[in-house]
Design a protein around this nucleic acid. Structure first.
Lengths: 231, 231
DNA sequence: CTGGATCCATGATGATACTG
DNA sequence: CAGTATCATCATGGATCCAG
C-alpha cells in the first residue's frame, strides 16, 4: 500500500527484504541450478521441468535486476549464459538450510513419474554427510548416470564435495552406475541397503564398497535412528 | 498428469519440496513471527502490516495442513492461539541464514514511512553478534520501546539471546529507551555512533555503555571493515 | 536449433467492507 | 477477536508462434 512497488512487503525487516528478492515462485530453484555453474536458458528449462519459458524469462530478469544473476551475451554468439553474482552465490548457506529442512521434514520417496535430477539427490547426500560429520577418510566415488553426465563425490576427513565431471571418467575408489530413478530409489530407501540391487551397479574393492555403505547409513536423515512405519 | 496439485513443482528435490510448503507469499513471515512464541490472529495482523485477513487465514490453514503450525482453539474462549510445531521451529536455521543474507546484501536504511518492529531489528543484531563471535563478557541490555513492549538482550561469552519481556523491567547493565524508528535509525547507521543522540536514551555506567558501543560496531555487517566512499 | 514473445485461462493475492 | 464476502488485479500455467 505504502510502497510504490506492490511486490514489496513494506517492512523494515531483512528477512522480508530477502524474500522480496528470492521469494517469488521458482526463484530459489533458479539460484539452486545456477549454483553449480553457468547455464543457458535451455539448460535451465531442462532442469526445471514444469516451468514455462515466460516465467523463466521473468525470473531471470528479476534476479538480474536485483543483482543476483548476471547474463553473458557475447556479441556474435547464439547462447546466453546465466551465472550467479557474488550476492547470488552468497545464498548458498540459506539454500542448504532449506534443503536440509526439507530432507528432515518432508522426506517422501520419489513418485514413479516424478522427474529426478541426480545433482539434487547427490547434493542432499553431500549436505547430510557434511552435517552429520561423517568421516570415511579420504574417498572418491564416481557416479555415472546415463543422459545427465558424471559426478564425482569426494570426502576427506569430514569434508565432502560434489562436482560435475564434464571430461572422461577419472579414477575413483568405487564407481556407481544407475539410471536417474534407480539412483533416487537406492539412496532414499532407508538402510540397510542391498549391495546387490538389480538396477544399480557398484564396482570397487569390497573394502571401499563397505566404506561407502557405512557412510551413507546416515541418509536419509533419521533413517539410522528410527523409521516411522507408514507410506 | 504429473502433479495432482498444481502448486507442486513435481521435482524430486528437497529444496523444491521445502518451497512447496513455505514458498508462498507471507508464509515465512508468519513463521518468523511465531518463532518468538504463540500469537493470536490479530497479533499476527499487527506485526505483518500489509497482509489482508484473507491471506493470513489462508497461510495459517496451509501451514496447519502441512504440520508447521498448530492452532489452539479452547472451547468457550474467543481467542485462537497459533504456535509452531517442532517442524515449524525446525525452520529457524533457514530463517536465520535468509535474514543474514538480507543483512549482508540488501542493507538499506529504513524509509521514513516504513513500519518497524523492534523485534526484527534486534533479531538482526543478535544474529550478527552471534555470527561474528562477538564476546563482550556477560552483559544484559534492556530495551524499552513504547507501544511494543520490552526486550532483554543478553550476551554470555559469544552466545547471544533476545527475549521479549512481558513483566516489569528487570535489572540490566544498560537501559535503552527509544521509539521504533529511532531505534532502527540508530542501529542501522554505520559506526561510529554518537552516544548522545537526541532521540535515543541510553543509561548505565560509562564502562557498560562503552562495552555496548564496542559490541555493536559489527552491525550492520561490513560497516566495521570499511565504508565505501563515494562522491 | 536457441531464446524467447504472445494470447488466453486460472488461481493467488490485494482492497475494502462486513459479521458471528 | 477472528475471521468471511465481494470484487479487482496480478502472477503464473498452457499452448503456440517467431526472430536470429
Amino acid at each position: 500500500m505504502t510502497g510504490s512497488d506492490p511486490r514489496s512487503y513494506g517492512h523494515f525487516c531483512m528477512l522480508a527484504k530477502a524474500l522480496e528478492r528470492v521469494g517469488d515462485r521458482w526463484a530459489l530453484l533458479v539460484v539452486r541450478d545456477l549454483m553449480s555453474g553457468p547455464k543457458r536458458f535451455t539448460d535451465l528449462m531442462d532442469r526445471m521441468a514444469g516451468i514455462t519459458p515466460k516465467t523463466l524469462t521473468r525470473r531471470l530478469r528479476d534476479l538480474e535486476a536485483d543483482g543476483l544473476v548476471e547474463a553473458d551475451r557475447e556479441a556474435g554468439r547464439r547462447e546466453v549464459w546465466y551465472q550467479l553474482t557474488p550476492a547470488g552465490e552468497d545464498l548458498q548457506p540459506a539454500l542448504e538450510e532449506l534443503l536440509l529442512w526439507g530432507l528432515r521434514n518432508v522426506a517422501e520417496p520419489p513418485r514413479p513419474d516424478e522427474p529426478v535430477h541426480p545433482e539434487h539427490v547427490l547434493r542432499a547426500l553431500q549436505l547430510q554427510l557434511q552435517r552429520e560429520g561423517v568421516d570415511a577418510g579420504s574417498v572418491r566415488w564416481a557416479v555415472h548416470v546415463p543422459g545427465t553426465g558424471n559426478y564425482t563425490f569426494t570426502g576427506d576427513g569430514g569434508r565432502w564435495e560434489l562436482r560435475s565431471e564434464d571430461g572422461p571418467e577419472t579414477t575413483a575408489d568405487i564407481s556407481i552406475r544407475a539410471t536417474r530413478s534407480a539412483l533416487a530409489r537406492f539412496l532414499t530407501a532407508p538402510p540397510p541397503r542391498d549391495p546387490h540391487t538389480e538396477d544399480i551397479e557398484i564396482t570397487g574393492t569390497a573394502s571401499a564398497i563397505r566404506t561407502f555403505f557405512k557412510a551413507i547409513d546416515v541418509f536419509p536423515p533419521g533413517s539410522h535412528i528410527q523409521r516411522p512405519l507408514d507410506a
